[in-house]
């Protein structure tokens, strides 16, 4: 059984994600997961076994804070250092239209492995657009509410009280998306080259054309401007 498709270096490939995007993506992965597992120790009400991995609740709290600061830095590096990419990403999300809705409606079938005919997608398909909306929003809320909970005494009490449910809701939404995203970006057969796009930065040209026709045409195909 094949887990993820083999990386083929000898076929034409096109760039999907630049170095900074990939670096911050995996930096975010590591820091997010560290925050998640240290935080779950509290969310699950006394998950002692989970806290024990980090040396008890004080250790878990320390790791949580260090990882949270690192995560904030990673997000800031991504937004500032990759500003053009961020703008292009947001613009792509805002192109959410008919083809994306069709994609999302057909997605449950594709998710389970049925073959479906999907209309041309932009750089991010309907599902990826959804993830691109929910996860970053949740992470921004996580970061803001997290710092409020870290130093509650300098904030109004009402805001601190609001930060608790916001932190939990954002965590659950982000984690739910991360579970799906992690699976769809790797072991789901329909995703094919996506993993290599984020790991090596390039995807097979035919896959790009097949899965993200609009993006491929606009960037590398006939409609590519000035390249």
């Amino acid at each position: 059984m094949q887990w993820i498709p083999e990386y083929k270096g000898d076929v034409p490939r096109v760039e999907r994600f630049n170095f900074l995007s990939r670096f911050t993506h995996w930096g975010h992965t590591v820091t997010f997961l560290l925050c998640l597992f240290t935080g779950l120790a509290l969310f699950l009400d006394s998950a002692d076994w989970l806290a024990a991995i980090f040396g008890g609740f004080h250790g878990a709290g320390l790791v949580h804070r260090i990882a949270a600061v690192a995560m904030t830095i990673v997000v800031v590096i991504f937004v500032i250092g990759n500003f053009k990419v961020v703008i292009a990403w947001i613009k792509d999300i805002l192109r959410f239209g008919k083809n994306d809705i069709i994609f999302i409606m057909l997605f449950p079938l594709e998710f389970l492995g049925f073959k479906v005919k999907v209309p041309p997608q932009t750089k991010f398909n309907g599902g990826e657009k959804g993830n691109s909306m929910i996860t970053p929003t949740a992470v921004i809320f996580l970061i803001l509410s997290g710092y409020i909970m870290w130093v509650p005494s300098i904030f109004p009490a009402g805001l601190v009280r609001l930060a608790y449910p916001i932190h939990d809701i954002s965590m659950v939404l982000a984690t739910m998306m991360v579970c799906m995203h992690g699976y769809l970006g790797s072991f789901h057969p329909g995703s094919g080259e996506s993993f290599w796009g984020m790991w090596k930065g390039t995807v097979r040209e035919d896959w790009a054309e097949h899965h993200h026709k609009t993006w491929y045409d606009e960037t590398y195909g006939d409609k590519a401007s000035g390249e």
Binding site: M1, F111, G113, M180, Y183, L184, F187, H188, P189, G190
Partner: peptide, 10 residues
């Protein structure tokens, strides 16, 4: 859901 999909897709 991911686990189910992992099995059914294959």
């Amino acid at each position: 859901g991911s686990a189910i999909s992992f099995v059914t897709t294959r």
